[in-house]
Nucleic acid binder design. Sequence first.
DNA 1: GTGAAAGCGCTAACAT
DNA 2: ATGTTAGCGCTTTCAC
Lengths: 339, 339
Amino acid sequence: MSATIKDVAKKAGVSIATVSLAIRNNSRISTVTRNKVLKIIKELNYHPSRSAKGLVTKTTGNIGFVLTDDHFLKTEPFYTMIFLGTEFVTKGNDYYVLLATIKKDFGEDDELPRFILERSVDGIIVAGKVPHEFLQKLSAYDIPLVFVDFFPSVGRYSVVMVDNISGGFLATKHLIDLGHTNIAFLGADITHPSISERLTGYKQALEQSNIRINYELISTDEDYPARQNGYNSAKRLLEMNKQVTAIFACNDAMAIGVMQYCADNNINIPGDISLVGFDDVEADLLLNPPLTTVRVPKVELGIEAMNMIISMISDKSNHHTKKILVPVELIVRKSTRKI
Amino acid sequence: MSATIKDVAKKAGVSIATVSLAIRNNSRISTVTRNKVLKIIKELNYHPSRSAKGLVTKTTGNIGFVLTDDHFLKTEPFYTMIFLGTEFVTKGNDYYVLLATIKKDFGEDDELPRFILERSVDGIIVAGKVPHEFLQKLSAYDIPLVFVDFFPSVGRYSVVMVDNISGGFLATKHLIDLGHTNIAFLGADITHPSISERLTGYKQALEQSNIRINYELISTDEDYPARQNGYNSAKRLLEMNKQVTAIFACNDAMAIGVMQYCADNNINIPGDISLVGFDDVEADLLLNPPLTTVRVPKVELGIEAMNMIISMISDKSNHHTKKILVPVELIVRKSTRKI
DNA sequence: GTGAAAGCGCTAACAT
DNA sequence: ATGTTAGCGCTTTCAC
């Protein structure tokens, strides 16, 4: 068994209260005593037990990270990168992060992640879109909350968001600057805030350049922005609209689907169609041609979210909700060309 | 504040001991009493506090997952997938997993991950190669340990390993079956057990087919199996040995580097060179041509490791070390061809 | 400046 | 079959 505070106290010839205070640099303890205690602590390789500390302070040193299982499982490691971002921050802080997935269709009867029920987290980061029912249940708990890459339409929350509007604008403007005017938008589930914001950016760019918005070129039929759905959207779109010369896909997964459709149908990218994605996933560079896209700094999103939740926890009195808008960047590669 | 065991006891009109026993289905409690207690628990939405429980049982419900920072950061999400595998298991068990990275050059003066020092994990999964010094320090703690995709050369441990020898054999045999005889092996850091095992498989396949092992075709100069090093190895190898028609790269990262070198030098794959990788990372399918490789079931490795550590924890008495060898599978795609 | 003691929310030995 | 009680390892008043 490893050393406890009692062992330290006995060996140092002081009370356990003194040890406790000395550890946390309380000014009530004299320097001499503190140094003596600290020396013994080192000798005994003493480290306070988290459980014991947690029991009295009602803190755990853990942060919960929640996302839906479909996000967890999807091919492009978008949320995984955000998660890794949170892990970066833990190196410098006394926190660990516990990952939990909830069902995409979380309902009335589903239980919240155990770490919430058992109070083993001091705060929660919610990543990506989560069901309303989940938020409903969660709201019964008074626990610091940060949303990343999604936030509920009602209520005031602290959030870390991607600047999707600028990204949509940048992508579309790039295509316009290359001479394209028949630019399609391939989206999915337009009720998803991120997608609708990207569409907003798309529209803004067209308007700014006095290009009429052609609703036939805006596809938002699919329910989820995944490769296969990108494939299907591209098929419908390109079979119907022979005039399109450029596509802005709402994310890289869909863009990859578009590329696959084009490859299958002898449509050359960027020869026949210029293509821009969104996210900048690892796969983009391996594609042929490499995909022009809007880079979302995923790791940074995690870092920001983690810093935010930590500051919320340490500053309980401050009930202000903060919002951070993380900027994006257009990465021009080989899937777009001038016409 | 949420309900405690006292609240439940009071409301149910029993002692806290009864509540505690009822929760854990202890047979000493009558069914009637248990049901009454369970009903109150539901009413109050009571969940035992993990910290309090942990303090007395000396368990935390957490598993530590340790890997080196370079593995954590690398492009191919190999260990990330193993980590995700552990997360799958947590859904069915009462565990969470805490991730910690250690420095690749962990030394005498470095501290172990905090979760070990503060006793906030019940067991540890060590993923990938870790420094000897780390294991040295770790050995001072009496905590269940499982190694995955690596194990120390000395000592008896429970491990989950990839069947690297079979994999190396399969990859090489595939090339031989296609008519190749000048087959290169591109490795790195031959002291890494996984790589040397893959090389062993390579040699076994050649020997079995009575092909002389040509040590000029075995490259193990690089220190780390990454893309750039694959690129460099391919350059050295192919500039010197004009006769090679096939390459078995010790992992997909290196194979991708080989492909990049070939693309840069007008060497056609599989026209001029047939190429086989190892791991089956997500990127393989997007390559041009898609990479023939040996699939390592990464998620399954994590699942096995997690199941193993859990069974070790729940069966403290059993001090047998277990070894699991996870089988691999050859995935033939388009980067190899008959000659 | 330091110590004594209460108590956080549980489990488990021991009583009854 | 159920209750009483000690104590897990800490933090935090409150005394001195």
